[in-house]
Simulated assay, not measured.
Amino acid sequence: MAIADRTPYQCLSVTEAASLIRVEKDIKVFDVRDLQSYQQEHLDGAMHLTEDRLPLWLNRIEKDVPVLVYCYHGNSSKTFAQMFADFRFERVYSVDGGYRPLANALAEPVAGQEIRRGLVDTELEAFLKEWNFDPIELNAPREHGLTPLMRAALQGQREIARKLLDRGVNIQARNDDGNNALWLACVSRNEGLVQDLIDAGIELNNRNDASSTALMYTASSDRPELTRLLLEAGADPQVKNFDDMRAVDLAASVACLKLLRHTL
Rank of each mutant, 00 (worst) to 15 (best):
A2N: 15
A4E: 15
T7S: 11
P8V: 11
Y9V: 06
L12T: 05
S13W: 10
S13G: 14
E16T: 08
A17L: 06
S19F: 06
S19G: 08
S19R: 08
L20W: 11
I21L: 10
V23Y: 12
E24F: 07
K25G: 01
I27H: 01
I27R: 11
F30Y: 13
D34A: 05
L35C: 06
L35P: 08
S37Y: 03
S37E: 14
S37L: 12
Y38V: 05
Q39C: 06
Q40M: 13
H48K: 13
L49Q: 01
E51T: 04
L54V: 04
L56C: 07
R60N: 14
E62G: 11
E62D: 12
D64E: 15
V65Q: 10
V65G: 06
V67P: 05
L68I: 15
C71M: 09
H73L: 10
G74N: 10
K78F: 03
K78E: 13
F80S: 02
F80G: 01
A81I: 11
Q82G: 12
F84D: 00
F84N: 03
A85Q: 12
E90R: 15
R91D: 11
V95F: 09
V95T: 04
G97T: 07
R100A: 13
P101G: 02
N104D: 04
Q113T: 08
I115A: 04
R117I: 13
G118D: 15
G118T: 08
L119N: 05
V120A: 12
D121G: 14
F127P: 07
F127V: 09
F133V: 13
P141W: 03
R142W: 00
A152G: 09
A153Y: 02
L154D: 10
Q155P: 00
G156S: 06
E159I: 11
I160V: 15
R162L: 14
R162G: 14
R162Y: 00
D166C: 03
I171M: 11
Q172P: 00
N175K: 09
D176L: 09
D176E: 15
D177I: 07
L182H: 07
W183G: 00
L184W: 04
A185W: 02
C186I: 08
V187T: 10
N190K: 07
N190Y: 03
L193W: 00
L193S: 05
L193C: 07
E203G: 08
N205L: 01
N206C: 09
N208E: 06
N208I: 12
A210H: 06
A214F: 07
T218C: 14
A219K: 03
P224T: 10
T227R: 02
R228W: 03
L229S: 10
L229P: 03
A233T: 11
A235I: 08
Q238S: 11
Q238G: 02
N241K: 02
D244E: 12
R246W: 00
R246A: 13
A247W: 03
A247C: 03
D249Y: 01
A251G: 09
A252M: 04
A252E: 05
L257E: 03
K258M: 11
R261V: 14
H262I: 07
